[in-house]
Amino acid sequence: MNKWLKAGALAVATLASTAAMAGDKIRIATEGAWAPFNYVNEKGQLAGFDVDIANALCAEMKADCTVVAQDWDGMIPALRVRKFDAIVASMSITEERLKQVDFTDHYYSGGLRFMGAKGKVLDTSKMGLKGKVIGAQRSTVGGQYLEDKLSDVVKVKLYDTQEAVYLDLIAGRLDGAISDELPTYDWLKSDQGKNFEYKGEPFAKNDKIGIAIRKNDALKQKFNKALQAIIDNGTYEKINAKYFPFPIY
């Protein structure tokens, strides 16, 4: 990488850090139930891509950050009432959410994809889905896609957690599930997920994942600068490689 760019990033980081120090601690929320992006590891600590990114950004901003777990459903209301200052929880930037909160630039991109049992045909066209039982996590992009685009043909089932979706896939209650493609990548390789596979091609690929902050919060600029810095200095790439063998930005 270009030396000048590095120096520039450093300068930006220093600027950002003074700003951060002038402010106070940054409290960051994540869900802790969306492996490999955010989950609780064997030591009981929050870990995953989101958490690594959050920590890298904080190191870049030299800010004093704490990462806390928060249930998905209450995430945005809690942000708005200042329970924490930012959400780094693989949250897609959507129009509906933008009415409530602000987002930074995206830190990775995703798309939706169907999955279902191996050996069973699941035609993912709207016609082919007619009468099928399809599940997704409540208040995710996948869940909203189900409700908005497919609820007239399929039987929609919404769950509190992605784990519950997996449980019901295994139990055979669902003909298929819609989810962000990347988080399911790991599960499909695991013991429990090995009998399932992606169905059809990824869609809604313009799904951009960003960091949510309160409206008009100066944190937005700080996060954006730090994000650009870790992308430029290679930190982002290292974190990416830790979880996926292909770039997800």
């Binding site: 492996a35 989950y39 609780v40 590891n41 064997e42 695991s190 013991d191 429990q192």
Partner: peptide, 8 residues
Amino acid sequence: MVFDGLFD
């Protein structure tokens, strides 16, 4: 799974 070590 990430929890395997916790089983006990």
